[in-house]
């Protein structure tokens, strides 16, 4: 059997990054506060994980304003979508293999 672990993406090891990617997969865009509430993490923690995903070109940041307040939204990139799907498939295969 081919080793399925090689398809598991190290970037998605963290629960928080997994959460961010999941939310972005099903929503056209999600803003920072919504993500914070969904995943229930601190600002700094969320920001650093978003940064990692951004550096990997998995998410794209859009800075905007609502009135005078900043509104930072995030969208998933094509690369991010592909990487996340591959990761999901690998997870699924791992679990299947254990049955």
């Amino acid at each position: 059997m081919k080793n399925p672990i090689e398809h598991l993406n190290k970037t998605f090891d963290s629960r928080i990054r997994l959460g961010i990617m999941s939310a972005l997969m099903v929503n056209a865009e999600v803003n920072f506060n919504e993500l914070k509430e969904l995943i229930q993490v601190t600002d700094g923690n969320l920001a650093s994980h978003l940064k990692t995903l951004e550096e990997n070109d998995y998410v794209k940041v859009h800075k905007g304003f609502i009135g005078r307040k900043t509104n930072t939204t995030y969208t998933i990139t094509k690369d991010g979508e592909k990487a996340f799907k591959t990761h999901l498939d690998a997870l699924e295969k791992m679990i299947r293999a254990l049955d």
Binding site: G19, L38, L91, I95
Partner: peptide, 18 residues
């Protein structure tokens, strides 16, 4: 195995909730 299963559950929950 358990961790992967939990990961999948988390993903599903997050997709639903969001």
């Amino acid at each position: 195995a358990l961790q992967h299963l939990n990961d999948l559950k988390d993903i599903k929950k997050m997709m639903e909730r969001s």
